[in-house]
Each structure stands twice: as structure tokens, then as C-alpha cells.
Computed example of a mutant assay.
Amino acid sequence: MNDAGEPARVRKIIHVDMDAFYASVEQRDNPHLRGRPVAVGGMHRGVVAAASYEARAYGVHSAMPSVTAMRRCPDLVFVKPRFDVYREVSRQIRAIFADYTPHIEPLSLDEAYLDVTEDLRGIGIATTIAEQIRARIRSETGLTASAGVSYNKFLAKLASDQNKPDGLCVVTPRQGLAFVAALPVKRFHGVGPVTAARMARLGIETGADLRAQSLAWLEAHFGRSGGYYHRAARGEDDRPVRADRPYKSVGAERTFDTDLVEAADLSAELARIAGYAWARVERAEVSGRTVTLKVKFQDFRIVTRAHSTSGAIQDEAEFLAIGRHLLHGLLPVERGIRLLGLTLSGLKPLEEAAMPQLGLPI
């Protein structure tokens, strides 16, 4: 019920997620790469930014160190990222979205939420709209997209991953509880590998297992996240689709299986985290001038250090160099470090950051 005592209107939400976006663009533009395992990223240094489905069959995935990817797939072809091309294709895709609704919330270059409760074309059926969007993306860009259709953002995002690649999944209000109950909790947004392992130790493997726990129990074991897990297990999510949502910060962090003490190990892990974070910066089409290092020690004490530059951070190398400088200020460590994170803030859209200032030579 709403505030007027009337039944709440059921939203119609679509989550569109491009299939292996960066790698698919490279395979589209280079016939020699089609059908081959492809990784977008640096071969000799850094991490995999994206992997084709042929590469994923070998266990190669984004954020994986390039050397590990090569060990798993010796025939892997590395391709240098072309973010200008990816951004242009993303603009094409968003133009397609805009033909159906003004309520578009991009999450990155390759995925977005759409609220089509009231669509511009008067189609009225979210599944039909999703089918038309997917068909147009294929026709106009030569790429495939998967889509999830449901009554909230949480379920739509889960559904878009259900039948990948090139798939469509619809979860109606009648199906929501059963759909969530059958899924492994590791599929839930916000449940990473560490949390999933912790849940498994507590006997929670599926959405049904999670729903069996009380709110008080979940909050006792997971703190503030307990409320989110309680709602997620019931397929509840009242977040609206927010068009042009501004980014406050972009980054990445990693919890280690074993606490780290050695400077060389910490530096190597920070490089991996920086690579993953910078890929997110590129996808978000932003620039920033403040780098923040987050460190969680063995005793769960958290320390942050930040450094701001006079201008925008230019590239991943500068981003990592600042992060390593901040880390160096905390070394040596007596107790192990269980988590590192690196974040870029003070953000501006790339177009705004690239505008020349008056009075300066171009």
C-alpha cells in the first residue's frame, strides 16, 4: 500500500548487460579473433580487464593477473584496450535505451537499469521492450546483450545473468520468492567470495537457507549488512532507477585468504587491485584527483590514507604509484594485513575534465 492507502504499483525494471563487452567488440572488429580465447588487458603486466567466452571456458576472468590467465590458457590472445571505441559503442546502446524510456541508470559502459513502468512507445509489456532492445543492439552494433526483467532492480540484475550469453529471463511477482530461494547466495550482489564462504560455514548455501534466518540472527553475524541479506532473501528491493547517478568514488578492494606482512607481497597485491580499480574508472568515464588507500589489519582495525593532486590522475601507473607511496608510509607492519583497497575520488566526467581552460594554449 502507498501513503494514500492504494495498492502500490508494480514497477517494470529491465537490467541489460552486454555479453563479454570489451572482448566481443574486439572480436567483432577483428575477424581473426573470432572463436579464439581473447583477453583485453596487458599481457606482461597487470590484470585481465575482460575475457571472451572462449577464454572463460579455461577459467580466465576479469581481475585475474595476466600471468595466471596465460597459465590457464596458453593460447590466450591479449588485446590492448580501446576505451574510446568501447565508449562510442556504449553511447550507441544508450541511444537505443532512450527510445523506450528516459529512466536509465548506467552502471558502467556495458550495463544499465531501465524503468519501463511507463515506456515512451506505449508498448506496456516489459518483456517485449527487452526483446526489442536486444534485437536492436544486435542489428545496430553487431553485439549481443542479455537482459533480466522483473519488478525490482535486485531481481532484474540476477535475472540478466541467468541465461547468459544472449539470453532473456523474466521473473514475475509470483515467481520472485521461488527464484531467489533456488539461487546460490554467491550469485547475490554484495555477497563476495569471502562472505559466501562465511555463509557456507554457517550452513547458508542458497536463498532459501538465507530466508530461514531471522533479521536479528543475520544482524548478529553480518552487522549492518544483515538487513540487506534479510530483504534480498525475500526478493525485496525498493530502490528506484536513478538516471544519471553521479559517482562519488570508484575503486576496488580485496580480502586475502592469508594475512600479508611482507612489503613485496603487499605491493604486488596493490598492483592487482589498482588494475581492477582503474578498469572501473575507465568504464565509468570519469577522472579524479584523490587517491585513498584502505588497509584492514589482522585485528580488523581499519586505517585510510589519502593524497590529492593538483590535476586529474593521468593513468593507472600514476594511480598505482600514489597508492604505493601511501602504503609505504604504513610499512613495516607488525601485524598482518587482511585487506587492501584503492579508490579514486574527486571525480568529474571525462568530457568535463578534458575541456581546456580559458587562457591556456591548446
Results as ranks from 00 to 15, higher is better:
Leu210Thr: 02
Met1Gln: 09
Leu358Val: 15
Leu344Ile: 10
Val194Asn: 03
Asp265Cys: 06
Asp166Cys: 13
Ile96Gly: 09
Ala145Ile: 08
Ala50His: 03
Leu350Cys: 15
Ala51Trp: 06
Arg283Asp: 15
Ala216Leu: 09
Gly207Gln: 05
Asp99Cys: 12
Leu177Tyr: 05
Met355Phe: 00
His189Val: 10
Met355Asn: 04
Pro106Val: 05
Arg82His: 13
Gly251Met: 08
Leu339Cys: 04
Pro106Gln: 02
Leu155Gly: 04
Gln175Leu: 12
Ala147Ile: 07
Asp315Ala: 12
Asp75Arg: 13
Pro7His: 08
Leu342Gln: 08
Phe97Thr: 00
Glu219Trp: 04
Gly235Thr: 06
Pro7Ile: 03
Ala50Leu: 08
Lys248Arg: 13
Leu266Ala: 03
Met355Pro: 00
Glu105His: 07
Leu215His: 15
Val116Ala: 14
Glu269Ser: 02
Ser52Pro: 01
His307Thr: 01
Gln298Tyr: 01
Ile313Met: 06
Ala145His: 09
Ala55Tyr: 02
Leu320Gly: 06
Ala274Met: 04
Gly124Trp: 11
Arg28Cys: 03
Arg231Phe: 09
Gly142Leu: 00
Ala181Tyr: 05
Val25Arg: 00
Ala252Pro: 01
Glu205Trp: 08
Glu140Gln: 15
Leu320Gln: 06
Ser66Phe: 01
Thr127His: 09
Gly226Arg: 10
Arg94Lys: 13
Arg272Trp: 01
Thr343Leu: 03
Leu107Cys: 13
His325Thr: 14
Ala4Arg: 14
Ser108Asp: 10
Ala317Asn: 06
Thr258Arg: 14
Leu340Met: 11
Arg72Pro: 07
Ala8Val: 12
His44Asn: 07
Asp265Phe: 05
Pro7Trp: 04
Leu218Glu: 08
Gly148Glu: 03
Gly346Ser: 12
Gly42Pro: 03
Arg72Ser: 09
Ile337Ser: 01
Tyr247Glu: 02
Arg71Phe: 02
Gly42Tyr: 03
Ala220Gly: 14
Glu285Leu: 01
Val77Met: 15
Arg245Thr: 11
Ala263Glu: 15
Thr117Trp: 10
Ala279Cys: 08
Arg9Asp: 07
Arg305Lys: 12
Ala284Arg: 13
Arg82Ile: 00
Leu218Gly: 09
Ser345Lys: 07
Lys164Cys: 09
Asp110Pro: 01
His61Asn: 06
Thr304Arg: 07
Ile123Arg: 06
Gly207Tyr: 01
Leu320Ala: 12
Leu326Tyr: 07
Gly148Asp: 06
Ala51Pro: 08
Lys164His: 11
Ala181Glu: 10
Gly227Phe: 00
Gly122Gln: 09
Phe78Asp: 11
Ala208Trp: 01
Ser225Gly: 01
Phe319Arg: 00
His44Ile: 01
Lys294Cys: 00
Phe21Trp: 08
Ile313Lys: 06
Glu269Asp: 04
Ala252Gln: 13
Arg254Thr: 05
Thr206Gln: 00
